[in-house]
């Protein structure tokens, strides 16, 4: 127990947070401006947005370098490690809730909005008076205003992607075991493989999107089916991208000889994140593709 109350390391002043704040501001103003001037081709917002992202990356690199240095020079205690871990866990919980909002939208449209437009519950007149020809089915291939599209089946690319992601979770776990058992070779090899699988997933997803847009006429604005499809898979894809970047950083740190079996919070955090992304995909696969 006494171990738990070592001196807690309180970092000295740091310029990174304010740099990060400015970066976020640039991103937000840039994105806002970009979106507003989309009809005219984007305006200056896009550049501001990219500049903001660049500053953000600069900040992250600097900030993490400080943290890594501190960690490597042994300033942190087990207690600090716990703080990091708990912080990461709560962050992932917040991400879960972010996805929950979109899953909520999916369930609501499927189970309430569309049936009601079709006259269910207390909405008989909605269908009779406003949308007499509308038929409530899911996937919603013909919207009430008559836009049509095609549904993405779960066979083929989505199924391959599911298999890829599930395997990648396993490979990452093997890498992690390698780290814990001081088997460096196992660690590097399986971590590298995981990264490749991540990239493979992303490539296939891009292919899927191209197929959807070019051949199926399934687009972001194809009624709620397209809306939920692209926002859910799209945000998931962004998270996979982020996760892959994290794993790549871990890969280089592993090559540099960072991490010990006892002390590898960053690796663990990335791995949690990867597993979380995997679980989200499984939900997606079931609710967006299969059912």
């Amino acid at each position: 127990m006494s171990q738990q109350y070592q001196r807690y390391y309180v970092p000295a002043q740091s310029p990174w947070p304010i740099v990060g704040a400015v970066a976020l501001f640039m991103i937000a103003v840039g994105a806002g401006n970009y979106v507003i001037s989309l009809p005219e081709g984007g305006g200056y917002g896009g550049y501001l947005l990219l500049a903001g992202v660049a500053v953000l990356i600069y900040m992250l690199v600097g900030w993490f370098r400080n943290v890594i240095d501190e960690s490597m020079s042994g300033m942190y205690s087990g207690q600090m490690d716990r703080s990091f871990k708990q912080g990461m866990a709560w962050f992932i919980f917040s991400e879960v809730m972010f996805f929950a909002a979109f899953f909520g939208a999916l369930f609501y449209t499927r189970m309430i909005a569309i049936p009601w437009l079709g006259g269910a519950s207390n909405n008989l007149m909605t269908n009779e008076v406003l949308w007499p020809t509308f038929e409530a089915v899911w996937p919603l291939l013909t919207t009430p205003d008559g836009t049509t599209t095609e549904a993405m089946g779960w066979q083929g690319l989505p199924l391959y992607n599911t298999i890829i992601l599930v395997i990648s979770s396993v490979t990452l776990h093997i890498a992690h075991t390698g780290l814990e058992q001081e088997k460096r070779k196992q660690l590097t090899a399986w971590l590298g493989l995981t990264i490749l699988l991540g990239i493979g997933f992303l490539t296939l997803q891009v292919e899927e999107y191209i197929h959807a847009y070019r051949e199926m006429g399934l687009m972001l604005n194809s009624g709620v089916y397209g809306n939920t499809f692209f926002l859910l898979t799209g945000f998931h894809g962004l998270h996979v991208t982020l996760g892959t970047v994290m794993l790549i950083v871990m890969f280089f740190r592993v090559l540099k000889g960072h991490f010990t079996p006892q002390n590898h919070f960053a690796f663990q955090a990335s791995s949690w994140y990867w597993h979380f992304v995997d679980v989200v995909w499984l939900c997606l696969f079931v609710f967006v593709y299969v059912l």
Partner: peptide
């Protein structure tokens, strides 16, 4: 979702596209 409904043509909150 407000952003995409307003600027990117989604219809989460628009009955015409199956939303509410």
């Amino acid at each position: 979702m407000i952003l995409t409904d307003k600027f990117f043509g989604t219809s989460f909150f628009d009955a015409a596209g199956g939303g509410d």
